[in-house]
Amino acid sequence: MTIEADSLEKLRTRTSEKWRAYPDDVLPLFVAEMDYPLAQPIADALIAAVRRSDTGYIGPDGRAKHAFAEYAGDAWNWAVDPAGLTTSTDISTVIVESLRLLIEPGDRVVITPPVYPPFFGMVTEAGGVVDEVPLTVGDSGWALDLTGLERAFASGARAFLLCNPHNPLGLVHTAAELSAVADLAARYGVTVVSDEVHAPLTHSDASFTPFLSVSDAAREVGIAAHSASKAWNLAGLKCALFVAASERTQRILDRLPFEVEERTSLFGAIATQAAFRDSRDWLRDVLVAVEDNRALLTRLLDHYLPEVRYREPQASYLAWLDFRALDWGVDPSALALDEARVALVPGPDFGEQGRGFARLNLACSPSVLTEAVLRLAAVTP
C-alpha cells in the first residue's frame, strides 16, 4: 500500500508550527513535521480515549514502555528491559534531565556539529558548557571524529551528546564507530546520552544500531533517548523515553524528580503504544514515500540546480543541501524564503559548519517537492 501526503488545502487547516509560521504563498519545508495523514491505529486510539473522557493524568500503566521494548526487539534485535524505561514529555526533556544528573555546572559536554540546533541550548540549560568536536567529511561522506572525541574526553569533558542517526545529515553511525565511542567514554569516565529519535526512520539501504546494544561498555556509559514523535509525526503529543541498560545508569535515572515522569502526556503514552505496536505498516509505507522523494530530490537537483550538492540521507526525511557553489551567502535559507517563497532551516543554526547550507524537509508530496526545487532554481541573486 502506498501513502500520499495530504493536499496543500487540507494541510493548511492544520494549526501546528509548519502551517502557521508562514503565509500561504510559502512552501514550508523547514520544521520536522510530515505531511502524511496520521496512522489510523493512532487516530483510533486517541479518538477512543476522547470518547471515554480519558483525558486525565498519566497513570501507572506500562503499556507504552512494553510496546517500545517489543518494537526494539523486532526492528533492531535489541533486547530492552521495560523496567529500564522511564517516560517524560519529549526528547529534549530526556536529554536535559539526563545531563542535569550527569554533570556539575560548568562541566563540558561534547556535541558534533553540524547538529540539531537545540543541542547547543540543551547543554547550557542543563548547566554545561558546549565542547564542539565537528564531524569529519571526505569523499566517502561524514563521520564521527574519534581522534577529536578522545582529545575532548581526555581533557575533561564529562558527557557526550550523541545524535544517532545524525540530524541534519541522515547519517547512520556504524556499530564499529559506536563501539569505539563507548570504549573511549569508558576509558575517560564520560557518559553518553544518545538521541535516537530518528531511528525508526532508517532507510531500507541502511541499518540502525542502538548505542546501548553495541557492547557492555556502551551499556555502562550510555543513556538513550527514544520517542515515536518523529517517525509517527506525534511531536505535539509529548511522550519520550529514557532508556537505561545497566545498574549504573538505572541508579542515575532513579534520581530523576518524580514530576519528570508525571509530566508525560496521557495522550502521548496512548499514541506511543499505538505507534510502536500497531502502526508499523504505516511507517513502512511512509519510508517508501520518503525514499522515493529522496531519489526524486537527487534527480531534480541534478537537472535544475546542479550546483547544489546533496548526499542522500540514510535515515529520516531531512536533506542537507550545500549551496556554497552558488552566490547565496552564509544563510541560503534567507534568499530561498525571500525570493523563492520556500522555507528551509538555516544551515548556520547547526553550527559554523552549516555556513552556506540549508536543511530541507522532503516528507511532502512529490508535487510540492518539485515545485520547491523549481522555485529555488528560478532565484537569481
Rank of each mutant, 00 (worst) to 15 (best):
F211I: 06
R277I: 00
P200H: 01
R52A: 06
V31E: 15
G56M: 08
G128C: 01
L8C: 04
E339T: 05
T272K: 04
L374K: 11
A199H: 05
A126K: 06
G141F: 03
P366D: 05
A143T: 09
R219K: 14
R219C: 04
A182G: 04
L8W: 13
S16H: 14
F208S: 02
P381L: 06
E261L: 04
W76F: 15
T272Y: 11
Y310M: 02
A228I: 02
A67N: 11
G62N: 14
F68W: 14
S279P: 02
L162P: 10
S367F: 06
N361P: 03
C364A: 15
T298L: 10
A39F: 11
F211K: 05
S279H: 02
D107G: 09
G84C: 04
T370E: 14
F276P: 07
L305I: 01
E352L: 15
W328D: 03
L101T: 09
V193M: 04
T136R: 15
S265E: 07
S204H: 02
A377M: 02
P346Q: 06
R324W: 04
L169Q: 13
P200N: 02
Y304C: 05
E371S: 14
A206N: 07
F323H: 07
V172C: 12
V109K: 08
S92E: 13
D322L: 01
G354F: 05
P60W: 12
Y71K: 10
A83S: 13
L234I: 08
S333E: 04
P114S: 12
L29V: 09
D139R: 08
N167F: 14
D278F: 07
E9A: 14
V50S: 05
A217T: 11
